[in-house]
Design a protein around this nucleic acid. Structure first.
Length: 868
RNA sequence: GGGCGCUUAGCUCAGUUGGUUAGAGCAUCUCUUUUACAAGGAGAGGGUCGGGGGUUCGAAUCCCUCAGCGCCCACCA
């Protein structure tokens, strides 16, 4: 320690305060850590001496919430552990400001909206600054200008996040900060896409896709969620083409009859076998459609025969594709019924019926159709109300529709069995914490029903970096896109110009046009290891940190963030992007509900830091087992604060003892046994942390700590005071144990451990070596069964205490006479510690008796107490 | 419908290859304040370990089964 330069760590003068306290210790140590740079990543370190973390970039719209405090603390405990193990820890922070939440905030704050067709204005200033008047119609601005505003606005939030994360004690190297809409992220994202395109892993396709009619964009399977919605079964009669009566189908979407292209029944369903191959005519619209068979038709569902529409749900898409049906689309991208009726509707009455619903929303059209069906007699009985699961975009407000559109995809195994198997195999190359989380990964991949749709018809985000030639016919040539050079990235095809063209040719015949779409936010987030590790611009650094050691994240985004990162890394580097995936649980409110603003059960982190201290909040977070959903608990923070206070007081006591002979060797059995027990704790804690189980490490250390305070210290403190011949054994053992315990607690309680460390050591505890059993036990003798010794002596002490409590007297009361009955072996152990036992119990005369029973019995005669 | 997790004291939870009498914290009650700590300390009460069956000398722990809660996924005419 003496070789640490003084200028690096200027702890307050090494002394123990008279009245130690936890007030304001955070600010002092945050300042010191910053100054001496204890969290700085050492770029010269070799890969095997680096621990790298693919930190989840929090979305910075809004404020830090306790769920983030919860999970980020877990990662930090692991980071601090590895730093003490001598690793150079690559622990970056990123801000996720590329996405809808940021886009919305910028629109509302500045009164602007992004329009890629507007030219970039270098001298642009926003019309408003958070004071947008009601009724203002947003000013359309270019995408580069919009991105500037995003960066400007989010930087304010990011500052607040940084302050809170520092207060929490995250040992992030802030010089490694990135943002997901920043230049480097856009470059990485676009280069990654171009590489996927060059290798054939990304491809465009015109196909039916799930579509959010409010956002006006396609969405990916991973962004769907089911919601309970009221609906109704409608029994509807289709006239048979041969004139032999009706076929009754059941549907929840009668408004789609105009989009009906077939009926389908199961091939083994005898009720319809004679009908297969025949035709029927749709009610109202009088279109002739075939009756076909397909395995996916369910015999026991409805009437067993289903109406196929283009497109009502994903099964319709399968039928449409596999049965080679025509497309008869009636829903537009705005969620309204198209103005023009499908060509198949020939009759005037059909066209008239269609004109009733044209331009209406889906909901309005349904009401109208049901009325018309009822009037025409095609509706059999009344609609029967049900509730059913309907697919929504997770951020959307109306059910998804399916529209046909041209989109970009990345192959993820959803349409390729071999590839799917390869990705499941990649999952086995990761070590999962907890291990059962791997099932969710496998489960997701096995359920994929298509490739990953990455294009979005939005205006803000990382643009698809392509242009298309416009032919003489005025149509874009999508077959051979114009690519940018890697050096040009990031580009925005809406304002940048492809090589060999100039801006005047934009949108003209013989000229070019930019791809209008942006990429899904996950298409960029799936490259966080590459972004954080500077894949695009610092090959040397990237080779030192990638594949990363750890990906911490929440379990509900295994299907999105985790899986998509594996996909990109598989393609780009042929490896899994990390060695370990650490999945954190959710923080629940005290009633085990998911916390949410609408329930009003949100507590702000800053308030808790003020009331309990950062270490106490961290104690709550790190006492939750990895991956387990955990209730928010201020009680647990109180316990954490108690622990921190106790550590202050114990440290004050132990450091304050004379330790004249620093080279003294622990010799007394109780001292040696205590150190052996502690060595076991070191061993278990180390193992636990290597396995990402900070909670077990904390629990083991804490359990030992309280035993140490309550029993061991009570027994040896008199001897330590005395200055007798065995005093040195006690003081050196106390020092050694305290030194070790402080370091064991350091990853979870960084502030209080640094505080007490500073009272007697010259450097930062966080730059110290993690304790080892070797250093604890190197110079002390083997001891047979140290646990037997400690429990036996502990039992005697406990019985003496109980006698005093039952005698309703102070623990200080002397014991006139004590008779211990135990086996010969037990008495030998007890006698070896009798000196300490006498001190702790206030014993006078002691008699020992051997017996054969296993149980130790103790008779206690208390000295008379003088009550004044 | 498939998968995963959970179910242990009033509450929140430990209990890691099966092993004395199942533990901790909080809460409750009793006792205890001049030498590290009252934001302390010493103790007490409180549990048929979700139900049933099995394996074993021995099961909270392993197997089977049932139930409840939660999550992920699929289906959803």
């Amino acid at each position: 320690m003496s070789d640490t330069p003084d200028h690096k760590f200027s702890a307050p003068e090494m002394r123990v305060p008279d009245k130690p306290g936890l007030e304001n210790i955070e600010a002092r140590w945050i300042e010191t850590w910053d100054r001496i740079g204890i969290n700085s990543f050492d770029r010269s370190a070799q890969r095997d001496n680096i621990f790298s973390i693919d930190t989840p970039p929090p979305s910075v719209s809004g404020s830090l919430h306790m769920g983030q405090v919860f999970s980020y603390t877990h990662t930090d405990a692991v980071a601090r552990f590895w730093r003490m193990r001598g690793k150079s820890v690559f622990y970056p922070m990123g801000w996720d400001d590329n996405g809808l939440p940021t886009e919305r905030r910028v629109q509302n704050y500045f009164g602007v909206s992004c329009d890629p067709t507007v030219p970039f204005d270098p001298s642009f200033t926003p019309p408003f600054n958070g004071d947008v008047p009601k009724g203002h119609r947003n000013t359309a601005i270019s995408r580069p200008n919009f991105i500037q505003l995003c960066e400007q606005l989010t930087s304010q939030d990011e500052k607040i996040f940084e302050v809170l994360f520092r207060r929490l004690g995250l040992s992030v190297d802030w010089s490694l900060l990135y943002t997901t809409i920043g230049d480097r992220a856009r470059r990485t994202s676009q280069q990654g896409f171009l590489n996927n395109l060059a290798r054939g892993e990304a491809y465009p396709q015109e196909a039916p896709t799930l579509w959010d009619v409010d956002f006006g964009t396609a969405v990916a399977q991973a962004e769907l969620e089911d919601r309970e919605r009221p609906g109704a079964y409608h029994s509807i009669a289709f006239a048979r083409g041969d004139g032999n009566g009706d076929v009754i189908i059941e549907t929840t979407r009668p408004e789609l009859i105009a989009a009906c292209v077939a009926l389908v029944a199961h091939p083994d369903d005898p009720r319809y076998s004679s009908l297969i191959g025949q035709t029927v005519r749709t009610p109202l619209f009088d279109v002739e459609v075939p009756v076909l068979s397909h395995q996916l038709a369910q015999i026991d569902k409805g009437t067993g025969i289903a109406m196929v529409c283009t497109f009502g749900d994903l099964t319709d898409v399968i039928w449409w594709r596999e049965l080679n049906l025509p497309a008869r689309v009636i829903i537009g991208r705005d969620g309204r019924i198209l103005a023009d009726a499908p060509e198949a509707m020939g009759s005037a009455s059909a066209r008239d019926a269609y004109s009733q619903i044209a331009g209406k929303t889906v909901k309005q059209a349904q009401t109208i159709c049901v009325d018309m069906l009822r009037a025409s007699g095609s509706l059999r009985g009344e609609p029967r109300a049900i509730t059913h699961q309907v697919k929504f975009y997770e951020r959307g407000e109306r059910p998804l529709e399916i529209v046909s559109s041209r989109q970009w995809y990345i192959r993820n195994g959803g349409r390729d069995y071999a590839l799917r198997t390869a990705f499941i195999q990649r999952g086995t190359e990761l070590t999962w914490h907890p291990d059962f989380m791997e099932h969710r990964y496998d489960n997701w991949i096995e359920g994929l029903n298509g490739d990953w749709l990455i294009s979005r018809q939005r205006f803000f985000g990382v643009p698809i970096p392509l242009w298309y030639r416009i032919g003489a016919n005025g149509q874009p040539d999508y077959e051979s896109p114009l690519l940018p050079d890697s050096k040009q990235l990031p580009i925005d095809p809406s304002s940048d110009v492809p090589n060999g063209f100039d801006e005047s040719q934009r949108g003209r015949s013989g000229g070019f046009i930019g791809d209008p779409d942006v990429m899904d936010t996950w298409a960029t987030s799936s490259l966080t290891p590459q972004i954080a590790g500077h894949w695009i611009d610092d090959e040397n650094l990237f080779s030192r940190v990638f594949p990363m050691d750890m990906r911490p994240q929440a379990h509900e985004i295994i299907r999105t963030w985790l899986f998509s990162t594996v996909v990109r890394s598989h393609y780009e580097h042929g490896v899994v992007p990390w060695r370990n995936a650490a999945l954190s649980g959710w923080m629940l409110d005290p009633n085990h509900q998911k916390m949410s603003k609408s329930k009003g059960n949100i507590v702000t982190p800053a308030d808790l830091f003020d009331r309990y201290g950062s270490d106490a909040v961290r104690y709550w977070a790190t006492s939750a087992r990895p991956g387990v959903d955990t209730a928010f608990s201020e009680d647990q923070m109180k316990v954490g604060r108690k622990l921190a206070t106790k550590l202050l007081n114990l440290s004050k006591f132990v450091i304050g003892l004379d330790d004249a002979d620093a080279s003294a060797i622990p010799r007394q059995p109780i001292d040696v046994a205590m150190l052996h027990r502690l060595a076991r704790v070191v061993s278990e804690s180390t193992q636990a942390l290597e396995d990402f189980d900070y909670a077990r490490a904390l629990e083991r250390t804490e359990e030992f700590f309280w035993w140490f305070c309550d029993d061991y210290v009570e027994m040896v403190k008199t001897r330590a005071y005395e200055g007798m011949k065995d005093s040195a054994s006690a003081t050196t053992s106390l020092h050694r144990a305290l030194n070790t315990m402080q370091r064991l607690f350091a990853p979870m309680l960084p502030f209080v451990t640094e505080e007490v460390w500073s009272w007697w050591q010259a450097d930062s505890i966080h730059q110290n070596q993690w304790p080892s059993t070797g250093e604890l036990l190197a110079d002390i003798a083997e001891l047979g069964d140290y646990e037997e010794l400690l429990t036996t002596v502990g039992e005697v002490l406990s019985q003496i205490r109980r006698a005093k409590t039952e005698g309703k007297t102070s623990q200080r009361t002397a014991v006139e006479y004590l008779k211990i009955s135990a086996t010969e072996d037990q008495l030998e152990l007890i006698n070896s510690c009798m000196h300490d036992l006498r001190n702790a119990g206030g014993l006078d005369e002691v008699e020992t008796v051997t017996h054969d029973q296993n149980a130790i019995t103790v008779q206690v005669r208390l000295a008379p107490t003088s009550r004044s």
